[in-house]
Amino acid sequence: MEKIRPIDIAEKLKISTSSLRSYEERGIVPKPERSSTGYRIYTEEHVAYFECIVAMSPGFGMDITSAVLKKLQRKELDAALWIINKAQVVNYEDKMIIERVNKYLENLTNEPTMTTGELSLQTNIPASTLRYWEKEGYITSKRGELNNYRLFDLFQLIKVLLMKITQNAVYSNEVIQLKQEIKELNQHDLEEVRKVIHDLQKHINKRNQEQLKGVFYLYKLFKIVNQQ
């Protein structure tokens, strides 16, 4: 079996050797053997694991990538695939949110009609998260005249749904920027609202393609592991 130096893997994947060690410490790759002088001895199997991490993490994030590769090391393929499947379902649900938001835009009203609880039910976002988003300025409410309850209009519902998409995304500078754009949205500037929706749709499409690439490398790794 060919033995490969860490520096060669790092250069090939454009990552640092410390990243390789970090992945090993997290248990995402099998423990390599050591030479008589204590150096790590990597094989083609390790290379496949590292390639898979680099390919999967942009579309799935490190938490999901780690969970999947730990399952694969234990040869629990079905369990690993269901984790992947669940993540892809979430991406499809985000696509449906975009379609839902576009329909709301066609019938936009300014009348505040939803309480925090009702908004939570409509969006499947916990009330505590909605209160936090309001505190941070992502959404705003008006107070009811009779009971002083927080009330939200349809535009705030739209903003919550857009924020929900960023919740499902892999953390990145792009996602930070999208959240800021959502925060600054004004319902009287529908052109900007549509631009942000378009940017989110592009982000979802990109994530879909990144996930496809990740699954491809996962399949390549599975074939190697399955031969053992």
Rank of each mutant, 00 (worst) to 15 (best):
M56N: 04
E51V: 02
A80I: 05
R100G: 02
A10F: 11
P112A: 13
E11M: 09
I83V: 13
N226R: 14
Y42H: 00
Q73V: 08
S36R: 14
R21V: 03
K135W: 01
T129P: 07
A87P: 03
K12Y: 14
A169G: 01
R131C: 07
D63I: 10
N208R: 14
E134F: 06
Y171Q: 14
K86L: 05
H188N: 15
V29T: 13
E136Q: 14
V89N: 04
E136N: 05
K31S: 12
G144P: 03
F216V: 14
G38K: 07
V193E: 08
Q228K: 13
K183D: 00
Q122C: 08
H203N: 09
Y49A: 00
L105P: 07
E45D: 01
L157S: 01
G59D: 02
V90D: 09
E11A: 10
K86F: 04
E181T: 01
Y171I: 10
N91I: 07
R21F: 01
S19M: 13
L162E: 02
G144Y: 08
I9H: 07
F216N: 13
K213C: 02
Q201K: 11
N226G: 05
G61M: 06
V160I: 08
N205L: 15
E184T: 04
N147K: 15
K135Q: 10
I97F: 06
Q73R: 11
S172K: 05
E76C: 03
Y171H: 14
S128Q: 15
T140G: 11
L154S: 13
Y92R: 09
R26A: 11
Y171E: 15
G214L: 08
I197A: 05
G117H: 10
N186M: 06
N205R: 06
F155C: 07
T123Y: 06
I125K: 10
M114L: 15
Y42F: 14
F152E: 14
N147C: 06
E2T: 12
E45P: 00
